[in-house]
């Protein structure tokens, strides 16, 4: 009885709230048909480009990594240049579990990587997120460099820049072997990305996600309305770190190889470039940015191994100058322009 009353109350409240110009807020979390598109494309790649699946897995991993950055950069407005620290910790968690502990079951390794990265995110976030802007930029950068140097110092454990070779990952669910063409791995990576994406999507459309955008839009006002700004940021940073850790773990499993390169500054910078290209604070920007960046990198590097970065740099400059909200923002603007033209 009580339950049906609640449902009726909710419905009554819903009907009184509709038509007040706030439907966008009431319905924001509902799935739109267009949201199926990236997943359909990803499955299409599996069937139509079977010889590019290893590369495809790399792209999906970058999408996941960029998605984790979007949660903190795009939604909460935290600028970091050390996000590779968590990617690297995830990768090394998997690598060390296999090589030093003989633990090679893939899915439990993912959880272990997420836990290690989350712990590091929580501790470093607790300390660093009292700062903002340029100071935070330098401190996050330094954290990643310190981790890399720590790994270098104990290269007896980490394998240093030569890396941890000879990782053998156990079959998925004990059944599906990792094949030469990366078919299993592609589907596995896509499945992990899908699950994590659903979690991130849920978080950004929650009241907590709304509070993160409040921090991005005006941190001073957030303090004034009594928001626990630091706590909100640490929670977001910890979640983002865990996801970056999962991305790093997938990377280690895909390559069956980990080196200290996972911590490199270039990776932190690349993921930020990806997000800016695709569009920050809009979930799917990570998909657009990662695909464009990775394909460009791949093609331009084949065409000109020395100067490929020039092409990426040029695209970034053009994006920042003419499409400040990223390519996805640009598509939205064009779509709105066309529908307006049609209406008039």
């Amino acid at each position: 009885m009580a339950e049906s009353n609640t449902v009726r109350d909710d419905k009554a409240a819903a009907s009184s709230l509709s038509g007040r110009g706030v439907d966008f807020l009431l319905n924001r979390h509902r799935f739109k048909p267009a949201e199926a598109l990236p997943w359909i494309l990803a499955i299409a790649v599996y069937f139509f480009l079977p010889d590019r699946l290893t590369f495809g897995s790399q792209v999906l991993i970058m999408v996941l990594f960029a998605l984790s950055l979007d949660l903190i950069l795009g939604y909460a407005g935290i600028v970091t240049l050390g996000h590779a620290a968590f990617f690297g910790l995830g990768a090394y968690t998997v690598g060390l579990l296999v090589i030093r502990a003989g633990w090679n079951e893939p899915i439990s390794s993912l959880f272990a990587a997420a836990a290690v990265a989350a712990l590091a995110g929580f501790v470093s976030g607790w300390v660093l997120l009292r700062y903002r802007g340029f100071t935070l930029l330098m401190l996050t950068l330094a954290t990643a460099v310190l981790l890399m140097e720590l790994g270098n110092l104990r290269s007896d454990i980490t394998g240093g820049y030569d890396g941890l070779p000879g990782m053998v990952i156990a079959p998925l669910f004990g059944v599906f072997e990792y094949d030469l063409y990366g078919k299993t791995n592609y589907l596995y990576t896509l499945a992990v990305l899908f699950v994590v994406f659903m979690i991130v999507r849920r978080i950004v459309y929650s009241p907590f996600g709304e509070a993160l955008t409040g921090i991005r839009e005006n941190v001073r006002r957030m303090h004034a309305i009594g928001a626990p700004v630091h706590r909100h940021l640490v929670v977001a940073y910890t979640i983002a770190a865990a996801i970056a850790g999962v991305a790093g773990a997938l990377n280690a499993q895909t390559n069956a190889y980990v080196t200290l390169g996972v911590f490199e500054f270039e990776r932190s910078a690349a993921v930020m470039v990806i997000l800016i290209l695709g569009g920050t604070g809009r979930l799917y920007g990570a998909f657009v940015g990662a695909v464009i960046y990775m394909v460009l990198e791949d093609d331009l590097a084949k065409w000109s191994p020395e100067f490929w970065q020039f092409g990426v740099g040029l695209l970034l400059v053009v994006t920042v100058l003419f499409a400040r909200r990223g390519l996805l923002g640009l598509f939205e603007d064009i779509g709105r322009y066309i529908s307006k033209k049609r209406a008039s």
């Binding site: 924001r28 929650s206 907590f208 009594g226």
Partner: peptide, 14 residues
């Protein structure tokens, strides 16, 4: 922020 709703991660803002 006043009611504590902002601490909920698993419910839609709407």
């Amino acid at each position: 922020e006043r009611t504590g709703a902002s601490n909920r991660l698993w419910r839609a803002a709407g």
